[in-house]
């Protein structure tokens, strides 16, 4: 991802209790509210963390993009066409890049520490 001009890091989610990296995502939907994901340790069944979704991109990227467009206010056909054409590829590339980062230089800090140090606004 040559276009990224930020300090980047990546970390696999770990269960605080048993250290497992196998997780189950329990998704919660309530009409009118943001979707929440309650992450459960697949090994010991305990609560690990909760994510609040601002977007959702599945492997069907065009369908995901359609959902995104429903909530975006855009006015430029040129930019929309660029987004439509590049979105799927970008997501795939990003996924590969993040996986490589974790394999080669995974951040050893706890996720809270990374968020509090680098992304203070990221905690809800």
């Amino acid at each position: 991802m040559a276009h990224k001009h930020c300090k980047e890091t990546a970390r696999l989610e770990h269960c605080e209790h048993c250290g497992s990296t196998e997780m189950k995502n329990n998704m919660y939907f309530c009409k009118g509210e943001n979707i929440k994901v309650y992450v459960e340790c697949a090994k010991c069944g305990r609560y690990v963390t909760r994510y609040t979704l601002s977007g959702y991109t599945s492997n069907k990227t065009y369908e995901s993009l359609l959902r995104k467009f429903r909530f975006l206010s855009i006015n430029s056909g040129k930019r929309t066409k660029q987004t439509v054409e590049s979105f799927g590829k970008e997501v795939e590339q990003e996924f590969g890049h993040v996986r490589d980062l974790i394999r080669t230089q995974e951040d050893e800090r706890r996720i809270e520490e990374i968020i509090e140090t680098d992304y203070r606004e990221g905690l809800d």
Binding site: Y62, L66, S76, G77, T80, K81
Partner: peptide, 16 residues
């Protein structure tokens, strides 16, 4: 006429 003319056209074009 063109996909770039409006965002709706670009979205429909993006369906392939």
């Amino acid at each position: 006429i063109l996909p770039i003319s409006t965002p709706p056209n670009a979205i429909a074009y993006g369906s392939g």
